[in-house]
Amino acid sequence: MIQLSYLDYSAVEGKSFLHGLSPKVKLVGMGLVLLAIVTVRSLPGLLLLYVILLGLFLISRISGRIFPLTLYPLIFAMLFIFVSGFQIGFILRIFLKVLCGSTGVVLLLATTPYPSIFRILGKVLPSFFVTALFLTYRSVFILLDVVEETQHALHLRGGLQWRHPWRSLVNISNAFGHLIIKGIDASEKMYESMVLRGFKDRIHYRGE
């Protein structure tokens, strides 16, 4: 989840050709990638799509630290191998679909600041839902700060030790509990400050 900060930094500070493209165009492009993932069945077709996405990843000069995010969904795709009875063609097709999807979305998020994405989504989705999306995304960063603080406290209380599983479980649960309570406190303050700034039911973006 720490890569999230890089993702956000890359979207705002990046200066490549893809960063300069209009968010609308990039969202339409992502839609086309999705359409291709859903409809293309041939291995060479999927491989070509993946190579194109990798090429775009390279020319966008996105930090290599973000790349593992695109591989993460493969962990879960492994389970799908067992459905197929280890058919190599099927497994390759699934893995390529996974990689194309994850590379596409990571590419979108690493080259487009999230307020721009949410602003466009706000035109087609209910404002209530888009506000919830925006607040969640914002809250992830608030909680990441809390996680950083909590890590020190967790370490001082013994942290995670395989030799003491129960203590480790209590420590990790307390850390999550602390995270939730801190998060709820922050959400109450956030609501009060939003109301003071005139929040009614939707967030207005710059330029609206």
Binding site: M1, F128, T131, A132, F134, L135, T136, Y137, R138, S139, V140, I142, L143, L144, V147, F176, L179, I180, G183, I184, A186, S187, E188, M190, Y191, M194, K200, D201
Partner: peptide, 18 residues
């Protein structure tokens, strides 16, 4: 619902971190 939007955002964020 509007009153609980920030809380919803925080809990969703906690789920994402989980």
């Amino acid at each position: 619902w509007i009153r609980h939007l920030p809380l919803l955002g925080m809990m969703s964020a906690a789920m994402i971190l989980g």
